[in-house]
Structures are given as structure tokens and as C-alpha cells.
Design a protein around this nucleic acid. Structure first.
Lengths: 209, 209
DNA sequence: GCCGCAATGTATACAGCGTCCACACAAGGT
DNA sequence: ACCTTGTGTGGACGCTGTATACATTGCGGC
């Protein structure tokens, strides 16, 4: 009950109200600028105006909090993908795949901390259908990619025999590039040039799938 | 001067002899099973039979040690690539690129800790020509890939106008898949199936480049 | 309207980490 | 023989995650 110094908001009630949410939000903020390693339990509790151990009433460990943040990051990515898809005034089924890839790469660029948190942590299951990591459609990023590929098969632009496992190939290429741009050798490439490479990569996927 | 308990080797001289090397080796061992986060300064000094602060005579910080380990991991990858290339009884220039990709993916599978250390850490420069991260040929993994692509151009199987930036596309695809298999959604896929996907991915690169 | 219980937040404590500072020892050129 | 320079030691600090015991609160049953 000290404070007025922390600057976050002094609490007057003994109970916080929605500490779980507050911790999660703090965790997301930490991940946003600083990546997964910056998600520090004590700092999250500090921001929530609460003693460190209070966190353990809502998360079994720091790792559990990190997983929750990770799920939120995946959900944010899913939303970004859905937005990019919604922009599409039917440019054909290939456009769907391209929109997914574009959204993925943009997300990596604009939210590097969240992106790294989403993927630089072991964590279960893009496959598993937890709604915590899904967008408005209820689909997570991985599933959205699957749908785009299914549409391509339905439209006849992707041979059905090449469909199984295709998400892994597409995902690999895009994910790999995102990593290289984010913290690999392409880190200090001028933005215009990264855009060119991004386009060429999407071309490669289109052609090579 | 206690010990006989640590099990590493009690030192009788005040000076260690080659502490830098010992710390680096310990760091590599830690990275090998545990990845970058397992590279812990105090543990490395413990294994070297020395007090924690002794490390600071040879590395400015934990991060500096980690970078040295990272360089060693890249060198190991370069060596693996060179070996795979040496096996080649001229199967044409495409075979060179494929060998690079194969070695990369195998390294990720067989040395996941080192692989993650090599790439999950920001760090400068696959580009920069430090010999610490190169193989016997003096070339680092990235440069080896470049050479393979150059050969393809020389042999006429890759149009010269597609050469610039091609290493980024190839690298992205392979690196992305390695990540997915290592700590992504493909983690628990049976090994035989990952092999199939690996082959298809290399096909995609071949075709789409 | 009171009571007791379960949920939630607090206090205190411990070990492990990276790192700083002052000191001890060893080796080598003068 | 000395003294400088490099290298390893000892002790300390603040940070982290987490365990264990305690305090406060809100809620359901009487």
C-alpha cells in the first residue's frame, strides 16, 4: 500500500479485481518491446501494483505466463491475417495465399517482439485448437494458411496431390525469411530491399509449391 | 583449491593454462544440450574449475562468451556442409545446392542445441568474414551457399538475373523448415515424414528459385 | 445478519544468476 | 632483485524465480 511512486496506479482495495488480465497485459507489453526474455514475472507484478507471489495465484510459473503471452501473440497474428484477407476483393485463390504470407511478414516487421515471442518459444501446438491463439474467425494462423491452400485446390490452381503438407512448405519459407530479416544476416538491409526479397520469396512459393 | 568433488579436474597451479579455451569448450557443451539459454557463465567457470569472476579476464560478459560459442556453432555447421559437399561425386551443380540444404537440415536435427545457439541469438554477421565461424575452406555457411549458387549460374542451370539475393530465398526456406521441425508445429512429426517434407522443400527451392 | 470457507494478495526467505571492486598470486623484462 | 602486468580469488550487490506461511477479503449457508 505504499506507492504513488511506481506510477502505475495505486490500489486501494485488497483484491485487484482482474489480476490475471493485468498480468497478461503487462506480459504482452513486455514481450512487445523486448521479446520473450523480457517477459519477467516480477516486472509484470510490479506493473500490476502487486507483490511478486500474487502472480502464482493465476499462473503456475513464469513459463505459464509466457505461454499465455505467446497465445495472445498468435491471436494477434491471426487477426492481422484476417484483416489482410478481408481487404481482398477477390483476386483469385492465389491472392489468398499471398495475403497470408504478406500479413505474416508484415507482422514480423511491425511487431518483432510479439513475433519472436510467438515462435522463439517451444510451446505446444499451432495445431491444437485453443481459441486463445485464434483470431475472430476462430482459426489460428496455421489453420488460416490451411484454408487458403484448400481454396487453391478447390479452384484448381494447386494439384490435389500436392496439397498434403503444403502448409509446411509455405510456412517454412515465409517463417525463415521473417527470422532472417528480424535477427539474421538480413537485419540491416534497407527496407525497400527487404520488400523486394519478400516478393520474390512469395513468388518462389507460388511457383515451387 | 578445494574440489575433488566437482569431478572436473582439480587444478594445482594458480594459473589455469588456457582458461579461455576451457570456458569456450564448456560453453559449447552447455549450448549443445540446452541451447543458448543454457550457456551460463557461472556454470562454465565451475566446469573449468575456476571462480566465476575469472571468466571476465577472457570475456567481457556472458554475452561475449555466448557470441564465441555461436561462432563455434557456425563453424561446426560449415564443416558439416563441407563434408556433405565432399561426398559428392559430381552429380551436377544442382547437387551442390542440395548438399548444402541437406547438411543444414541434418545439422539442425542432430545438433539442435548448437543450431539454436547459432541462429536464435541476434549477433552480427554471417556476412562478416570472421574465421572463427568458418569451416576448413575458410568460408562460413552463408558463403558456402553463395558458392553453390555461383556454380549453378556458371553451369547455366540458374539464370544470372535471378542470382542476386538467391541465397536469401534458399536460406529462408531451409532455415524456416529447420525451425518448424525443431521447435515448431512439426516437432513431433515422425522422422520418416520429416524427411519427406525436407525433400519436397528442397524440390520447391530448386523449382522456384 | 452472522459465520466459516475458499480465493486471493502479502511477508519473508532462499538459491542462482551476472557483474563490480579490492586483493593475491605468478611470470617476465629491467 | 624489483616492479609491472596479466590472471585467478573473495566478497558483495541487486536482480531473478519460487516455496512456505500468513493476512485479508468475498461469498454461500444458516
Amino acid at each position: 500500500m505504499m506507492d504513488a511512486s511506481g506510477g502505475i496506479r495505486a490500489r486501494h482495495t485488497y483484491h485487484h479485481g482482474d489480476l490475471r488480465r493485468a498480468l497478461l497485459d503487462a506480459g504482452i507489453a513486455l514481450a512487445r518491446d523486448g521479446g520473450p526474455d523480457a517477459v519477467v514475472l516480477r516486472e509484470a507484478t510490479r506493473r500490476a501494483g502487486v507483490v511478486p507471489n500474487a502472480a502464482y495465484r493465476h499462473f503456475a510459473s513464469r513459463h505459464a505466463l509466457l505461454q499465455a503471452v505467446r497465445a495472445a501473440a498468435l491471436a494477434a497474428l491471426a487477426v492481422a491475417m484476417e484483416k489482410q484477407l478481408a481487404r481482398l476483393r477477390d483476386g483469385g485463390p492465389r491472392a489468398g495465399l499471398r495475403a497470408i504470407g504478406t500479413a505474416y511478414l508484415r507482422f514480423a516487421r511491425t511487431e518483432p517482439g510479439l513475433f519472436r515471442t510467438a515462435f522463439a518459444v517451444p510451446g505446444e501446438a499451432e495445431t491444437a485448437g485453443s481459441p486463445a491463439m485464434a483470431g475472430k474467425s476462430g482459426l489460428n494462423p496455421f489453420q488460416l494458411l490451411g484454408v487458403a491452400l484448400d481454396r487453391m485446390v478447390a479452384a484448381g490452381v494447386l494439384p490435389a496431390e500436392r496439397r498434403p503438407g503444403a502448409e509446411y512448405l509455405a510456412w517454412s519459407a515465409v517463417h525463415g525469411l521473417a527470422m532472417l530479416v528480424l535477427e539474421g544476416p538480413l537485419r540491416r538491409l534497407p527496407r525497400t530491399q527487404t520488400r523486394v526479397i519478400e516478393q520474390r520469396l512469395l513468388d518462389m512459393v507460388d511457383k515451387g509449391l
